[in-house]
Simulated assay, not measured.
Amino acid sequence: MKRTLLQAVAIVWLMLLSVTVQAQGEAFAPVRNAIRSGSSKELAQRFGSTVELSFDGDKQSYSATQAEFVMKDFFGKNAPASFDFVHYGGSNEGTPYAVGKYVSKGGAYRMFVKMKSAQGNLVIDIIEFTKE
């Protein structure tokens, strides 16, 4: 009896976990599509009022407009050959994040994107690129 109950709880927990991961993946889908296409304009539509951008540890906060131009410059110098998120997660407070691999002709980058809630919407708070 205990074993059956334990198995049932485990199955329900795994189902809830898969729904959470799927929901996080869906929240990041427009971000993934913008990065894949190298579109700073589409990506900027997901920015919060300020965005922290980091390239190999050099972090700086920008307004959404400034961040769009910084990303346009990055995509211009490092046009995407491929990109995909490889891991989704969330903090204890529910802040979603994703880790991906960005490949350009100039090299590969590990990419970290963290979102935050602003006025009921999820917006990009941090983007980090680390050259591999």
Rank of each mutant, 00 (worst) to 15 (best):
M111K: 07
D73G: 10
F55K: 06
A64I: 01
P96Q: 04
F55P: 10
G107F: 00
E128H: 07
A44T: 12
L17G: 13
S104G: 02
V12M: 11
K101M: 06
R46G: 11
G107V: 03
F129T: 08
E42H: 09
L43G: 14
Q119Y: 00
A23W: 14
G76S: 02
H87V: 10
K116W: 04
L14K: 02
R110N: 04
M1Y: 12
V19Y: 11
V99T: 06
G90C: 12
T95C: 02
A64Y: 00
S39Q: 13
L16Y: 02
R46P: 06
K77G: 01
K116T: 15
F47D: 09
Q66D: 15
T50K: 07
P96Y: 06
E93L: 12
Q7Y: 02
G120Y: 12
F74G: 03
V51A: 07
K101T: 14
V99N: 07
S18A: 14
A64G: 08
Y97L: 06
L14R: 10
S18Q: 02
G120E: 08
T65W: 13
K101E: 15
S82R: 13
G38V: 03
F47L: 05
F55G: 06
M1G: 14
E26M: 10
D84V: 04
E42K: 09
P96M: 02
A67C: 01
N78W: 07
N33Y: 11
F75N: 00
L122E: 15
G25T: 03
D56A: 07
V123G: 01
Q7T: 13
T50D: 04
V99D: 01
S91E: 05
S117T: 14
L14T: 08
M111H: 05
V19Q: 09
Y102D: 03
F28C: 13
N78D: 04
K59I: 10
M15L: 14
I35Y: 04
D73C: 04
I127D: 01
T50E: 09
K114G: 04
K77F: 07
G57Q: 01
E68P: 08
G90F: 08
R3E: 15
R110H: 07
T65C: 09
K105Q: 15
E26A: 13
K41Q: 13
S49G: 04
A108F: 05
I124N: 11
G25C: 00
T95S: 09
G38I: 13
V70S: 08
W13S: 11
M15G: 12
G90D: 07
P30T: 14
D58P: 06
S18E: 00
L43H: 07
Q45P: 14
G90Y: 09
S37H: 10
S40Y: 11
G90P: 02
L14P: 00
R46C: 03
F74L: 15
G89P: 08
V123K: 09
Y88G: 03
E42I: 04
E26Y: 11
A98D: 07
Q66S: 04
A118H: 00
S39M: 04
I127V: 06
S82G: 12
A10L: 12
T95L: 14
F69S: 15
G120P: 06
G106W: 02
G38A: 11
A34N: 11
V103R: 12
G90A: 10
L17A: 12
A27G: 02
F28M: 05
A34F: 02
V21C: 05
